[in-house]
Simulated assay, not measured.
Amino acid sequence: MTGLRHALVTGGGSGVGRAIAHALADAGMEVTICGRGMEALEAAAKEYSRLHPIAADVTDAASIASLYKQAELERGAIDVVVANAGIAISAPAAKVSLEDWKRTLDVNLTGAFLTVQPALSGMMARRSGRIVFIASTAGLKGYGYVAPYVASKHGVIGLMRALAAELARTGVTVNAVCPGYVETEMLERSVERIVEKTGRTPDEARAGLMACNPQGRFIQPEEVGSVVRWLCSDGSASVTGQALSISGGETW
């Protein structure tokens, strides 16, 4: 990965973000991981000497500015930004509160923009960089009972395409990775909500979610990490503006 030395991964303390951070560290990068709580970040950092935790809130521009200032002071310019932090709230559309709607878009869409914006000028000046948004198959199709999440992830795909078009001649690539259901803590919370609201058993709830994947399985976090690592490699230099579905054939 010529010239790419320092990566930022939001939501890097658990699940998909943690797997991405591990994959980039394995590729030789120093990886700044951020999230709102230091406990999970510090636990992840203990596993890899190349992982460096900093607490930050992706919905707060001042917090992100502070994150960049500290990370770049300690480890140099950020060459790779992976906007992974996100939340999901489940409810029938008719019952979604305005607060939950705004919170979901604030974290998933505005937070993604605030995460990458500070990196743009430096990347363009260096004519090198990688921006990867972790979206979802929900950015490529519709799902019931998660309207704010679907809307926010469609917005992330639009943001990615706009930035890819704007930066196409700068040497900076911009892509999105769109996983289906990934076997993480977030998935377990989805299972718990299904059990609570439908009376199904946990196994029945998991089977229902797994059925969305034509391969009949859940995506593993390490698979997403591998795709992000490839998008940051020299071999992906001509790949930009793409929404890559990691879903066993659910979407394309």
Rank of each mutant, 00 (worst) to 15 (best):
A162V: 12
A45W: 05
A27T: 01
S247V: 00
N175E: 03
V107T: 14
M160Q: 13
S14Q: 15
S90N: 08
S236F: 04
F113C: 05
A168N: 02
E99R: 10
F133K: 06
P92Q: 09
A40W: 00
E99Q: 11
P202N: 08
E30W: 02
T2L: 07
Y68H: 03
L98K: 08
S14T: 12
G129R: 09
T10K: 06
K95H: 14
G15W: 02
P202V: 05
E72T: 11
I219R: 00
G208T: 01
K141W: 00
P214Q: 11
R217T: 11
R126F: 03
A88C: 12
S49F: 02
A62I: 02
G199R: 09
V150I: 13
Y143M: 07
K197T: 15
A88M: 13
I87K: 09
D57F: 08
R127H: 15
A55I: 01
Y68K: 06
K153A: 06
E72W: 05
V116K: 02
M38H: 07
S247P: 00
I131A: 05
L187D: 03
P202R: 03
K153N: 10
K197N: 13
G171S: 06
A88L: 13
G171D: 11
S236A: 15
G144N: 13
A21W: 07
L114F: 13
A62T: 14
M29G: 02
G86Q: 04
C34Q: 04
W101M: 06
T201D: 09
M123L: 05
T137V: 15
L51G: 05
V239S: 07
S63G: 04
V16D: 02
I20Q: 10
S97M: 11
A45M: 10
S238V: 07
M160S: 11
S152P: 03
D234H: 03
A43D: 13
A91V: 01
Y48D: 15
F113N: 01
C232E: 10
C232I: 01
L244I: 12
L159G: 06
P148H: 03
G76H: 14
V81H: 11
A65R: 11
S66Q: 15
T240K: 04
M210V: 08
T59V: 12
T198Q: 13
P202S: 07
T198A: 04
R229T: 01
F113E: 05
K153H: 12
I134Q: 04
T170P: 01
L167C: 06
C212G: 03
P118D: 07
L24G: 05
T10N: 10
G199P: 04
P179A: 05
G144V: 07
T2M: 06
P53T: 04
F113M: 13
R36A: 12
A23T: 07
T184Y: 01
A151K: 05
E99H: 09
Q70F: 00
A164Y: 06
A44W: 13
G122C: 03
H6K: 02
A7K: 06
G17W: 08
I131S: 04
H52Y: 15
A7Y: 06
S245F: 01
E250A: 02
